[in-house]
Design a protein around this nucleic acid. Structure first.
Lengths: 346, 346
DNA sequence: CTGAAAGCGCTTACAG
DNA sequence: CTGAAAGCGCTTACAG
């Protein structure tokens, strides 16, 4: 079924059929009707590739995340999908399974598909080699009209960014925890090359420093950015000898794993140990106890990043949409030792 | 950057350049090298649309699910992504947000994109009108070489299917629960037009009937297929007057909502009431108590459905890959009233 | 408003 | 093994 066939059975030229079907130009009413009818009758479906080739623009946007199976990305992706549907765009989704090289390769593939926009979800890497090759892909893409937007800080990419305030959020969380009376902390952290990890750790540390609290080196344990990573990190922390009354896992997903590990070792949360995460992925409010965390509006961030990518740029500068995190004190954190905490928090 | 430009700077014809780049035919070694070098130097990226148009085949597969934000779909999608990556295929993902009409529309769009395969994830609808329009899309697509595969039962679609044994799984769960001594059950169910809901409900009911247990009409409450749906359904059940010692939510996601509602009303799980779900989505083992459920290998199902779609069909018959569910008795279900249950289960 | 024609960037018989 | 040429199925100036 081609346009030509439709045109022929409608008794018009392909040009007219195209215009009638797409509404790109005025077409005499009766011709229009005939074309539409013919298309309907023949079950005509346009060839998106031919359209893209002829018009030099496609209706797909590319989204690259680390793993759709992770609730953080799945929530953001959900927001992107919603925004894409509203604009009649299709989404090409790629999971890198956390391999930076694959991320670059996917950008290249997305360029081949002439994606109207490319969205990088998920933390950037503080890795010069990676940045260089990523920039090498993104540069030509953008100068040929492609739009790029990212979620999270990507150091030198200079692209439109939806920027969760990781540092401020972690700092505020730390202050709230201090407000509960805690003075000894441990941190379960992720791969240090991820900007998200670096920022959260730094914010947390800075806020502790405000109160002259130091984070002992052996109380900071690194793990993979997954539930299993959180589990292993917590186990390692216990093996090293826990000297904290409160543990901060830099993501909720890690916190979930940590909770399991702590439980298995016989520790009660929050009675023996408080635990906090970051992100507020959908499930953590349903844990027992519900997890204290820094809430990010993940779905909205997904909508925003697509909007940002597609919105007409006004100048040279890349735009940054800051997203504040909201500290949610829930059941997984308790006042220290039965509550010597001051009433007003902080 | 076009193929022609590469060919020209390499001093060969476009045909040769194409063959060298794609490895589709033998090319004299020195020419091949020159082409590859030229492409590299020019930063050549092929136009996937032109390739698809000229070769009449694309390298994308389409996936339609209800909502990527839901852990069930996100896990399956993760499996699809992995399988797609292994085959160097890109995935076009669509979320219908549970609107059947949108599902049909997406199939049409995917046809326009000449997707090599279309995967329908998520339950079918027992709705004749829907089936008719879906079949009207799928038929022409398949006879023009498109592959289709689905997860879950889609009544009359006659396509390759990854079929979780919902009925058998729910029946086995019921037997295990009866084995714990329970005799009074309530069910939190989803939209009855979904085949998944119908099958699970039926399997559960049938197994109860084997033991002459009837499910009272007012103890079966319908809710949306979401956490909120489960929450509301549980609340409604309580409002009607709970007369069960064990509640079965037809999906884990609903069970999570139900657990919250039960808790809020002051009921303890499993001391006052046992609760079970279905699917074993990643989080439920981390709930407190961990949820009893029927485990489905979701990620593997995602891999399987893509493999199935792409595997060369051998005959006319559609293939069915049955997936057994494994009953996992965890902490959310307890023996009835302190355990009159027989030792061996069942 | 309508149509003939060129062109989008590739691939692939078809000759050589 | 290599190249000239046709063709994939559209869109869109350009005339009329």
């Amino acid at each position: 079924m081609t346009l030509d066939a439709v045109a022929r059975t409608a008794g018009v030229s392909a040009a007219t059929a195209s215009r009638a079907l797409n509404g790109t130009a005025r077409v005499r009413e009766d011709l229009r009707t005939r074309v539409l009818l013919a298309a309907e009758r023949l079950g005509y479906i346009p060839n998106a590739h031919a359209q893209a080739l002829a018009s030099a623009q496609s209706s797909v946007v590319g989204v690259i995340c680390h793993d759709v199976g992770d609730p953080y990305f799945s929530a953001i992706a959900s927001g992107v999908m919603r925004a894409a549907a509203a604009r009649d765009l299709m989404v090409m989704l790629a999971s890198t399974f956390r391999a930076p090289a694959r991320e670059v390769a996917y950008v290249s593939t997305l360029r081949a598909h002439r994606a109207r926009a490319i969205l990088l979800i998920g933390s950037g890497f503080e890795d010069t080699a990676w940045e260089r090759s990523m920039a090498a892909e993104l540069g030509p893409y953008r100068s040929s009209g492609g739009r790029v937007a990212v979620v999270s800080r990507h150091r030198s990419l200079r692209v439109d960014t939806v920027l969760p305030e990781n540092r401020a959020g972690a700092a505020e969380l730390a202050r709230a925890l201090i407000g509960l009376g805690h003075r000894d902390f441990a941190v379960l952290t992720g791969p240090p090359s991820l900007t998200t990890v670096a920022d959260r750790l730094r914010g947390f540390r800075d806020a502790l420093a405000e109160h002259s609290i130091r984070l002992a080196a052996d109380q900071v344990v690194e793990g993979a950015f997954t539930r299993e990573g959180g589990y292993a990190a917590a186990a390692e922390l216990l093996a090293r000898g826990l000297r904290a009354s409160c543990v901060f896992a830099v993501t909720d997903v890690m916190a979930v794993g940590a909770l399991a590990a702590l439980r298995e070792s016989g520790l009660r949360v929050p009675e023996d140990l408080s635990l906090a995460g970051f992100d507020d992925v959908p499930i953590v409010r349903d844990l027992t106890p519900p997890l204290t965390t820094v809430a990010l509006p993940l779905v909205r961030m997904g909508e925003t990043v697509l909007d940002l990518a597609l919105r007409e740029p006004r100048g040279q500068r890349s735009r940054v949409e800051r997203i504040a995190g909201e500290v949610l004190l829930r059941g997984s954190t308790a006042p220290w030792r039965g509550g010597t905490a001051p009433p007003g928090s902080e």
